[in-house]
Structure formats: C-alpha cells, structure tokens
C-alpha cells in the first residue's frame, strides 16, 4: 500500500510548489524586514538572517523536490508523452501530473532566485 496514492483527485497537488514558493518569499522578505526594523531590540547579527534564509531555502527546495517526485510519479515516470488531451480520466490524471511537474521546476528556480540576494547582502541598509 502506498503512503500517498499515485492518483490524487485534488488540484492542490498542482498548487503545492507555487504555494511553497510564495510562503518562502514571504518568510524571506518579511523576516528580513522585521529583523532590520527591530535589530537593536533583538541584539542579533545579520548572519542570523542569512542563515535563516539558507535554512528555509533548503527546506523549501526539498519540499518542492518531493512534490516534483510525486508529480513525476503521477505522470507515469515519463512513459506517457503529452499533450494528454483526451477526455478521459487517464489523460486528465497524466495532464495534472505533467503540469505539476512543470510548476515544480518553475518554483524550484524561483525559490533560488528569491534567496540569491542573501548571498550578497551583508547588512541592513540604513
């Protein structure tokens, strides 16, 4: 028995990766903004922000990879070629898997782009 069924009749699998991307974006930007506004009260170094962004980025990328693997599985491990446009349960399922896989790839790149400034920025801009 599989822990997660191979065919999921929910659109939420489609939105998982973009949702992770959105949450990661908010955590990075809101987190950095709050830190810079309250840095005197917090008494922490900016390296805390960079490390925090690094950790949430790794978590987000792993979650997207997981979602991508499920999508790859739902698509049939690449054995079925697109466009999956027959009006059947089989094609609808494969289409969803393929679309989810593409969104995972987009979200993966977007999460890296979101985190890249943390590699350069070393201080809150006054």
């Amino acid at each position: 028995m599989r822990l997660i069924p191979k065919e999921v009749e929910s659109l939420w699998t489609l939105f998982t990766a973009p949702t992770i991307w959105a949450v990661h974006f908010l955590v990075c930007y809101v987190g950095a903004a709050v830190f810079c506004a309250k840095r005197n009260a917090l008494g922490l170094d900016f390296i805390t922000v960079r490390s925090g962004i690094g950790i949430v980025t790794v978590i987000a990328l792993l979650a997207i990879l997981g979602s991508g693997w499920l999508a790859w599985r739902q698509w049939g491990f690449g054995t079925h070629e697109p466009p999956h446009d027959e009006p059947s349960h089989h094609d609808r399922n494969r289409f969803q898997g393929f679309a989810t896989l593409l969104l995972c790839a987009l979200s993966f790149v977007a999460v890296i782009f979101t985190a890249m400034p943390a590699a350069i920025i070393t201080e809150c801009n006054p």
């Binding site: 890249m116 400034p117 350069i120 201080e123 801009n125």
Partner: peptide
C-alpha cells in the same frame, strides 16, 4: 547582485 556592494555600500554609511 554582485554590483550591489558597489551601488549601495552600506558599510560606508554605518
């Protein structure tokens, strides 16, 4: 991003 330290040298402002 690599241009940022040159365009916004925050250490000079500190």
């Amino acid at each position: 991003l690599s241009l940022m330290p040159k365009l916004r040298p925050w250490t000079a402002v500190a």
